[in-house]
Simulated scan of single mutants.
Amino acid sequence: MPQDAVNQMFSNIKTIYQFHHDFLLPQLQERIDKWENDPRIGDLMKRNAPFLKLYTDYVKNFDNSMNLINYWLQKSSKFSSIIREVQKLPECANLTLQHHMLGPIQRVPRYELLLKDYIKHLPENSADLKDAQAALDLVTKAASHANEAMKKIEKFRKLLEIHQSLRGINIDFISPTRELIREGPIIKIAARSGEKLSRYLFLFNDLLLICSEPMLGAYKVKAQMDIESMEVITIFN
């Protein structure tokens, strides 16, 4: 795999990691250690909030990252093998690489929620209140970039969860453009015998999956259909 593909795949994640590891988190830890003498974090968050805009580039590149990961998982058996081995590590908690790459996008909105909760519990005469409110304004602006992408990414997260539960699917399932429309159980009536069979459907904007009923959280794919040329006919009994 060319280095350029790796750089595009992971965007500026190294810079984001270094910012947290080398600057923000050590500063927060120092404040916690000295909390009894200096109980404030508003000034610290205010000073560091502008750096949270680093996430903007990461969010903008997310779709491209997912496409590259899917492409190289299909093209490179070595890359695919490495990813499978890494995902088996306890630190990965049986989650895919795509799942873990959602994490940075959620970080800034979490800072926003934490600051709101922090301010809510500050006394009105707290010396940290003004800085904390200023920090919240800055973090909220940074979070807006992530929040705009969150709805789309939550749909993508759902897609990843479904993919992990499917058995017997033989298509390139993960795609940033694929969205779940509806899912649920149905009764299928066999055309020849009239036998009633329990099935579970996943309807996407471009695909229909007909699965067996879930067993231990897994769905066996019985049929997959491209909905582009599909026609729905209403039948009255």
Rank of each mutant, 00 (worst) to 15 (best):
A49C: 11
P50L: 10
K53Y: 15
T56R: 11
D57S: 13
F62P: 00
N64T: 09
M66S: 06
M66K: 05
N67A: 15
L68P: 01
I69N: 00
K75D: 15
S81R: 08
I82S: 10
I82P: 00
E85F: 05
V86C: 14
Q87N: 12
K88V: 03
K88F: 03
K88S: 14
E91F: 11
C92D: 03
C92Q: 11
L95R: 08
L97F: 05
L97K: 05
H99S: 10
H100N: 13
L102C: 12
G103P: 00
I105M: 11
R107L: 12
V108P: 02
V108H: 09
L113P: 01
L113G: 08
L113E: 11
L115A: 05
L115C: 05
D117A: 11
K120Q: 14
P123S: 13
D128L: 10
D128W: 02
L129Y: 04
L129Q: 06
K130Q: 12
K130D: 13
D131Y: 08
A132P: 01
Q133A: 09
A134F: 04
L136V: 02
L136Y: 06
L138R: 08
T140N: 03
T140Y: 02
K141V: 09
A142W: 00
A143E: 03
A149P: 00
M150C: 01
K151F: 06
K151W: 02
K155L: 09
K158G: 06
K158T: 11
L159M: 14
